[in-house]
């Protein structure tokens, strides 16, 4: 009897490709989701719900990801960059993160608050709040400006530190032979 159960268990496991408990958990998941979906049908909103649900499932992978990945590649290659003549010992630290971080943070704010910032729900908003949404664009631009300014400041500090450390390196180099044992 026991070996029979064990045998079935193994048979299901090989046929299915995972522990039968895995199957049980997924069936429970689909049962609950299916019941919730039947409530969506009962509410009479199935088509719109389905379109938005599937859209939600793919919007990041097929729309947002290609957009920000492409923007990132372009920013890393910097086709607009001027070729700088090698400027002595000063090393320019990589710029990419000083662009990437403020741009992404500002983009996130726009992604979340675009109806407010672009005044897309103006009528509903005024009906509800008894004010208009005119301050939001300015506030978003202000935050964006602060982010880029902070990033530029951080880059300047980094550059300064790089310069002073490379200067101290060049000052150190001629002294090096003196400290060698042969000196």
């Amino acid at each position: 009897m026991l070996s029979g159960i064990r045998g079935t268990y193994r048979w299901v496991a090989t046929r299915y490709g995972a522990d039968p408990l895995h199957l049980l958990a997924l069936l429970a998941c689909f049962a609950l989701a299916g019941y919730a979906a039947s409530r969506v049908v009962a509410a009479g909103i199935l088509v719109g719900f389905l379109v938005w649900f599937v859209g939600a499932a793919i919007i990041h992978d097929l729309l947002l990801y290609p957009l920000y990945a492409l923007a990132d590649i372009v920013a890393q290659r910097r086709p607009w960059r001027r070729r700088r003549p090698p400027s002595g010992p000063v090393q320019w630290p990589p710029l990419i993160n000083y662009l990437r971080v403020p741009a992404a943070l500002s983009g996130l704010l726009l992604l979340v608050w675009f109806p407010l910032i672009l005044r897309l729900a103006e009528q509903n908003y005024e009906k509800s709040v008894a004010l208009d949404t005119s301050p939001y664009l300015g506030r978003w631009l202000l935050v964006t400006g602060v982010l880029f300014a902070g990033s530029a400041l951080a880059y300047a500090v980094r550059l300064r530190r790089n310069k002073s450390s490379s200067r101290s390196r060049t000052r150190l180099r001629p002294r090096a032979p003196r400290s060698s044992p042969s000196g």
Binding site: F30, A37, I45
Partner: peptide, 25 residues
Amino acid sequence: IQLFYVFPFSFYPAHLYGAWIFLAA
């Protein structure tokens, strides 16, 4: 929360039933 009602359904049932589907998964 931004009163941007562009979805073709009422918010309450969609947000509630969507939550249960999400919870299951």
